[in-house]
Amino acid sequence: MSWMNAVPVLIGLILSPLLFGIINRVKAWFAGRNGSPLLQTYFDVFKLVRKGMVYGTTTSLIFQLGPALVLTSVLLALLMVPFGTMAAPLSFKGDFILLAYLLGVSRFFTVLSALDTGSSFEGMGASREVQFAALGEPTFMLGALLMAIYTGEMSLSGMVREIHFEAVGGQSAAVALLVAAWMMLLLTENSRIPVDDPNTHLELTMIHEVMVLDTGGPLLGMVTYASGIKLWIFSALIANLLVPNLHAGAVTQGAVFVAAVLLIAVVVGVVESIMGRVRMRQIPKVLVGATALVATGLIMTLAG
């Protein structure tokens, strides 16, 4: 691992809060508003970190430590995400499994922190979170399997290195299905419309936001930053599927890749602007649908 490998991670760490800014700007543009500044999430995080803390009277140490574990696990997960053609700092066969389970650690402690408050709202959000996450897991794993079969590589970095349009060739339909399925996964895992609405004002209808209702100050800062990184991870995974190997220098390739990640944020913004929320009872169908898309892709590999 050379120091060059650290650069993509640094870019991810620096740019991830920008994704929220882009999404909000796109939504504002659709609604005909000016919208908040692009850098609003940075301002929010800085403001939150400087504040004092208020702990709920029912909470215990878990509530104070949970967000630290959430941040730790997404930071480590980021280390395994390849950056275009540039390999991730940490790459080994089967690393996508560890990536999925690290995100699982972050979810586990988000849920425990929520339950620590004893608030029924937070319990409700936690209950929904674990349900939808469980249904999302197979989509991710089968998608990674699909990529492994195509590229003959078992690590994320290896898979990404092997994807270029010449190599994928006639199988591009399956890759398109995978992109669609993972896009649905991105929207679910990052609590966006049509699964969850980050801007809703009714606790009863929230999923992720309701779990951090009582989290404030530096703790909320950590949670916000962690969710930025999580959105970056998912966007980068999809961008990796889309950006071809241009056989260009590292800087050009990196710039195209970052542009693709930011473009995914724009797409998320567009989706949020033109779609409504799916009813809570219908969400499992959306998720099973995503798995079905990937499974179709897999069947296409059997045929091909």
Partner: peptide, 18 residues
């Protein structure tokens, strides 16, 4: 193997956080 393990993993997290 991957589908069942992934589903089991997600549900186990649900069960044990519960």
């Amino acid at each position: 193997v991957l589908t069942s393990l992934a589903l089991i993993g997600g549900l186990a997290a649900a069960s044990f956080t519960r």
